[in-house]
């Protein structure tokens, strides 16, 4: 079995681990969670979870709503802290957000008073990056996502898909080593959703960066990822951790492949069996 996301480690006791011998040649993985859980008061929302994510992989995390997958992403982003357990980035304890991690939220969160270009440039402004180079990259990203002609438009003049593309550009502007995607297509209609996710998949492949995608859409998770993690209902734990051995580039037809359907069925069974139990 050829593993696109080589170097993946999954050691959750409940996981049907599909990791192979070729795993973890790096000294420390990009992200490593050891026995991490998150409680809100008495309520345990997540975990305990053990998870390691290697460089240059696209990890899809899918789970029923309320399973704590967004909580997991917030922990990895450093916006929230775990109640228990240890969270490390390249072997160092994580103490808050990093400028090397980009986030794309479910809602585009574009600043409504700023033009598209200004929005994409926000990280450069906050980080005080060299302006000329940043502007060049911003324009390149806008062109890549088909937004070149809308650089001076305010967000409210654009469609949902365009806004989400702009948010993608903003997240990529500082060239983050890790991109966190929190249901980035959740607010879109089905057609824009499919189109945009495939587009993002192609772009990601070109950029060869690490990404973690949170979604409740199993097909989307499989279509985009090198690795699929299925989470249980609250408190979210890892039910399945499997490599997605589908060739790239992926397109609409990928969803018709036998292997795609097998993985989809496996994930569905796990989610629904748990629901009924």
């Amino acid at each position: 079995m050829k593993h696109v996301g080589a170097g993946l480690v999954a050691s959750s006791p409940t996981a049907e681990s599909a990791s192979t011998a070729e795993q973890s040649r790096n000294d420390a993985p990009l992200i490593e969670l050891s026995n991490v859980s998150k409680c809100f008061g008495e309520l345990r929302a997540l975990g305990p979870i053990d998870l390691a994510i290697a460089d240059a992989s696209f990890v899809s995390i899918v789970g029923p709503s309320g399973c704590g997958k967004s909580t997991l992403l917030r922990l990895i982003s450093g916006l929230d802290r775990p109640s228990e357990g240890r969270l490390q980035r390249y072997g160092a304890d994580l103490d808050g957000p990093s400028r090397r991690v980009g986030i794309m939220f479910q809602d585009h969160v574009l600043l409504p008073w700023a033009s598209l270009l200004e929005n994409v440039m926000l990280p450069a402004d906050v980080f005080a990056l060299p302006r000329t180079a940043a502007l060049e990259r911003a324009r390149w990203l806008l062109e890549l996502t088909g937004l070149k002609d809308f650089a001076d438009h305010k967000p409210h003049m654009l469609s949902g898909g365009m806004k989400q593309r702009a948010a993608f550009c903003r997240a990529l502007l500082p060239d983050p080593e890790l991109l966190l995607l929190d249901e980035p297509f959740g607010a879109l209609d089905a057609l824009s959703r499919e189109e945009l996710s495939l587009e993002l998949s192609r772009l990601w492949q070109d950029l060869a960066r690490t990404a973690i995608l949170i979604t409740h859409d199993i097909e989307e998770a499989i279509l985009l990822g090198d690795r699929l993690i299925v989470m249980s209902q609250r408190p979210g734990r890892i039910l399945l951790d499997i490599g997605i051995d589908l060739p790239r580039p992926r397109d609409v037809d990928t969803a018709k492949r036998q292997r795609f359907l097998e993985i989809k069925q496996m994930a569905r069974d796990l989610i629904f069996r748990r629901k009924q139990a």
Partner: peptide, 17 residues
């Protein structure tokens, strides 16, 4: 809105920024 603050915090923006 909290998402806007999350965005700024994720960029490690200072309170002044």
């Amino acid at each position: 809105p909290k998402p806007m603050l999350d965005l700024m915090h994720s960029l490690k923006a200072s309170e002044a920024a």
